[in-house]
């Protein structure tokens, strides 16, 4: 952990020219043994998950859990309302009228699964986030336009500013800067 003046360093940010260079540097960071690094691009890059050695997203399990919850809520709600609390005889149909309950059960399963997918994704990504030190870098604004960035965080056990800079230099970074908290 290095400190310049009284500001705490967040990490080293490097800009690259195109998706290929960014994918290459991601492989390099993995091979050098860094773990707290990230790459930033205006769109998802094909093959980046393998280059960055990312594990399978856990999102599927979150969605499955929510789907099961939605299914159970739907059945429990209709069972309570139509069978327990106020049974109504409608054209002699059974109170527990399973075929007629299919549409609502389906809809609520989908609804809760979609909540799980969207809010689960934001949760896994740690969003919404009020402040991100990377936004201190004026240049980083290009990351949502046409910039390709890589960052190694100071929290990484192997972090040494000079070595990180050398790695980026070697990978052909067009611009390297230190980002402060």
């Amino acid at each position: 952990m290095s400190t310049t003046e009284d500001q705490k360093i967040h990490g080293i940010l490097a800009e690259f020219r195109n998706p290929k260079e960014l994918t290459d540097v991601a492989k390099k960071m993995v091979n050098s043994g860094y773990s707290k690094f990230d790459t930033f691009s205006p769109f998802p890059i094909h093959g980046m998950d393998k280059a960055m050695n990312l594990k399978k997203s856990k999102l599927g399990w979150i969605v499955l859990g929510h789907g099961i919850l939605g299914f159970s809520i739907a059945i429990a709600m209709m069972y309570f309302m139509s069978v327990i609390d106020y049974p109504l005889n409608i054209s002699g149909k059974p109170f527990f009228n399973a075929p007629a309950w299919v549409p609502i059960t389906f809809e609520l399963t989908v609804l809760l699964s979609a909540f799980g997918a969207v809010f689960g994704m934001f949760f896994l990504n740690g969003l919404p986030k009020l402040h991100n030190p990377l936004f201190n870098s004026e240049r980083f604004k290009k990351a949502t336009d046409d910039g390709f960035f890589a960052c190694i965080e100071a929290d990484d056990d192997m972090f040494e500013a000079e070595k990180v800079k050398a790695l980026f230099q070697e990978a052909g970074a067009t611009h390297i800067e230190e980002v402060y908290e």
Binding site: F40, I45, A117, M121
Partner: peptide, 28 residues
């Protein structure tokens, strides 16, 4: 925009979410 940075760790979950939502919206 919730503090979106374009991080590829985020895109990874994002693409998964997008795929699942597409899979849910189709039967819906």
């Amino acid at each position: 925009s919730l503090g979106w940075t374009g991080s590829n760790r985020h895109w990874w979950n994002y693409e998964k979410a997008y795929m699942i939502l597409a899979g849910l919206a189709t039967p819906l």
